Amino acid sequence: MEQGTVKWFNAEKGFGFIERENGDDVFVHFSAIQGDGFKSLDEGQAVTFDVEEGQRGPQAANVQKA
């Protein structure tokens, strides 16, 4: 798993971006967030995640709040 920081996340649209430790950004969809209840992330929040190849390039999977 990688570690990163939430760059931004739009809860209304259900997606955002995580900044990886290497400085690259990776797309995150709310469906990739682990846990119960409303799935959202806060700007600046530390997270761990896997990276999978999506239809439009790399995207975060198995996102967990650190």
Results as ranks from 00 to 15, higher is better:
Gly4Phe: 01
Asp36Asn: 12
Gly44Leu: 05
Gln59Arg: 11
Gly54Met: 07
Gly14Pro: 00
Val6Arg: 00
Ile33Ala: 02
Gln59Val: 10
Glu12Gly: 13
Gly16Gln: 00
Phe27Asp: 00
Val63Asp: 01
Arg20Ile: 07
Asp50Phe: 13
Ile18Asp: 00
Asp25Arg: 09
Ala46Cys: 10
Ser40Thr: 14
Gly23Asn: 11
Asn62Trp: 06
Phe38Ser: 07
Pro58Ala: 08
Thr48Phe: 13
Glu19Asn: 12
Gln34Cys: 06
Gln55Thr: 13
Ile18Ala: 01
Gly14Trp: 02
Val28Arg: 00
Phe17Val: 08
Phe15Ile: 08
Phe38Pro: 09
Gly35Ala: 10
His29Asn: 03
His29Ser: 04
Ala46Pro: 11
Phe9Pro: 00
Asn62Ser: 06
Gln55Gly: 09
Ala32His: 06
Ala46Gly: 09
Gln3Arg: 15
Asp50His: 13
Lys65Val: 14
Trp8Ser: 04
Gly4Val: 01
Asn10Asp: 09
Val26Glu: 01
Glu12Arg: 15
Thr5Asn: 09
Lys39Cys: 06
Val63Phe: 01
Ala46Glu: 10
Gly4Asp: 01
Ala46Ile: 12
Phe27Trp: 06
Ile33Val: 08
Glu43Lys: 15
Ser31Val: 04
Ala32Thr: 05
Ala60Trp: 01
Pro58Thr: 09
Val63Gly: 00
Gly4Tyr: 01
Gln45Lys: 05
Gln3Ser: 13
Thr48Pro: 01
Asn62Ile: 04
Ser31Arg: 11
Ser31Leu: 07
Glu21Ile: 14
Ser40Val: 10
Glu19Thr: 15
His29Glu: 03
Lys65His: 09
Ala60Met: 01
Asn22Tyr: 13
Asn22Met: 11
Gln3Leu: 12
Glu53Asn: 13
Glu2Tyr: 15
Lys65Thr: 10
Ala61Glu: 06
Pro58Arg: 12
Phe30Thr: 04
Gly54Trp: 06
Glu12Thr: 15
Val28Gly: 01
Arg20Ser: 07
Lys13Ile: 08
Phe17Pro: 00
Val26Gln: 02
Gly44Ser: 05
Phe30Pro: 01
Ala46Val: 11
Glu21Asn: 13
Phe9Asn: 00
Asp50Gln: 13
Asn62Phe: 07
Ala60Arg: 00
Gln59Thr: 08
Gln34Ser: 11
Ile18Lys: 00
Asn62Gln: 05
Ala32Ser: 10
Glu19Val: 15
Ala66Lys: 14
Asn22Pro: 08
Gly4Thr: 00
Asn62Arg: 09
Val28Asn: 00
Pro58Phe: 11
Phe30Gln: 05
Leu41Gly: 03
Gln3Val: 13
Gln55Pro: 15
Val63Ala: 03
Arg20Val: 08
Gly54Asp: 06
Thr5Met: 10
Gly35Gln: 10
Phe30His: 08
Thr5Phe: 13
Arg56Ile: 07
Glu53Val: 14
Ala60Phe: 01
Lys39His: 07
Asn10Arg: 10
Ser40Trp: 13
Gly16Met: 01
Val26Ile: 12
Met1Leu: 12
Leu41Asn: 02
Ala11Leu: 10
Met1Ser: 14
Val28Lys: 00
Val63Leu: 05
Ala66Tyr: 13
Lys39Ser: 06
Glu21Cys: 12
Arg20Lys: 08
Glu43Thr: 14
Thr48Asn: 08
Gly16Val: 01
Val51Leu: 11
Lys7Cys: 07
Asp42Glu: 13
His29Met: 06
Asp42Leu: 14
Asp24Asn: 14
Ile33His: 02
Asn10Ser: 13
Gln64Arg: 13
Gly23Gln: 10
Glu19Cys: 12
Gly14Gln: 03
Val28Ile: 07
Gly16Arg: 00
Val26Gly: 00
Trp8Leu: 03
Asn10Pro: 02
Ala11Cys: 10
Ala61Met: 13
Glu21Asp: 13
Asp50Pro: 00
Val47Thr: 03
Ile18Ser: 00
Leu41Ser: 03
Val51Thr: 07
Gly44Met: 05
Glu21Lys: 15
Gly37Leu: 06
Val63Ile: 05
Lys39Thr: 06
Val6Phe: 03
Val6Leu: 05
Asn22Trp: 10
Gly14Leu: 03
Phe49Leu: 04
Arg56Gly: 09
Gly37Tyr: 07
Phe17Trp: 08
Phe30Ile: 06
Gly57Lys: 05
Asn62Lys: 08
Val6Pro: 00
Asp42His: 15
Val51Trp: 06
His29Phe: 10
Gly44Ala: 05
Val6Glu: 01
Val26Asn: 01
Gly57Asp: 02
Asp25Cys: 09
Asp36Met: 11
Asn22Cys: 12
Asp24Arg: 15
Arg56Thr: 07
Ser31Asn: 07
Lys39Gly: 05
Ala66Thr: 12
Gln64His: 12
Glu52Lys: 12
Gly44Val: 03
Glu53Trp: 15
Gln55Leu: 14
Gln64Lys: 12
Asn62Gly: 05
Ser31Pro: 03
Gly37Ser: 07
Ile33Gly: 02
Asn10Met: 06
Gly14Arg: 04
Gln3Met: 12
Trp8Thr: 03
Ala61Asn: 09
Ala60Gly: 04
Val28Phe: 14
Gln64Thr: 10
Glu52Trp: 12
Thr5Trp: 15
Arg20Asp: 05
Gly44Ile: 02
Gly57Ala: 05
Thr5His: 15
Gly16Glu: 00
Gln3Cys: 10
Gln3His: 14
Gln55Lys: 15
Val28Glu: 00
Phe38Gln: 08
Gly35Tyr: 08
Asp24Tyr: 11
Phe27Ala: 02
Ile33Phe: 06
Val6Trp: 03
Val47Trp: 01
Phe9Lys: 03
Gln3Pro: 06
Ala11His: 14
Gly37Lys: 06
Asn62Tyr: 06
Ala66Cys: 10
Gln64Val: 12
Ile18Gly: 00
Phe27His: 02
Phe17Ala: 04
Thr5Tyr: 14
Asn10Ile: 06
